[in-house]
Design a protein around this nucleic acid. Structure first.
Lengths: 102, 102
DNA sequence: TTGTCACATCATCACTCGCTGATACGAGCG
DNA sequence: CGCTCGTATCAGCGAGTGATGATGTGACAA
């Protein structure tokens, strides 16, 4: 069952720019400079979004000299996928469980 | 691939109250009165959230006399689940694709 | 028809959020 | 050491968002 904790993760993914970042990171492990190039956003702006993704537990940081690489945590995405699949499966049978008008 | 359109759906689900509503609707088809009882929210507030979910294409309305029943659209949730699953699968191999430092 | 109920919409207010410029800080290079 | 580069943090501003009370609308019952 979806708990309120997941709302933070979902909200973190509900921003177009962050969703694009996640999509990019799903293909490659990138550092901030790469993400700035790919998205066209300012460095400061991007750093803020990365902080949101980091605090939501969606990405991990990996320092490499002066650079900071970001990579996704697949288990978080997989967990979300599973929970949505459960909701969808449950929703398919929900039409029959119509509670009577009060 | 995740498009920017999906950000709206994800954002709509990124609110704790709306997530609770969706969870409730995954089990039963309910009308506004039921949801008010279950969530404890005001009717006006709830109606606003239902509008968001409706415009995001997550729920459908079904008038029944004076009552309005809401039910989930399973295919939307299933689609989200699938996309997240793709991202997770792709992310598992992304660690190896580390782009060189610029 | 009149009243009530279920629900939606509107206007408003407080608050949050995203974006930006300025700044701080650590790592490497000269 | 001093400098530059990559990155994070901070303060501030404007836009978007959630909660609320008042109001509108359609459906049913008396």
């Amino acid at each position: 069952m979806l708990t309120s904790v997941d709302a933070d993760v979902i909200r973190a993914l509900g921003d177009p720019l962050r969703l694009k970042i996640v999509t990019l990171l799903a293909r490659e492990t990138l550092c901030t400079t790469h993400l700035v190039e790919e998205t066209g956003a300012r460095q400061t702006n991007l750093s803020n979004h990365m902080k949101v993704l980091r605090e939501a537990g969606i990405v991990e940081t990996e320092p490499c000299g002066r650079f900071t690489y970001y990579k996704l945590k697949p288990e978080v995405l997989a967990g979300l996928s599973e929970r949505f699949a459960e909701l969808a499966a449950s929703a398919r049978t929900a039409s029959e469980n119509k509670r009577a008008c009060p």
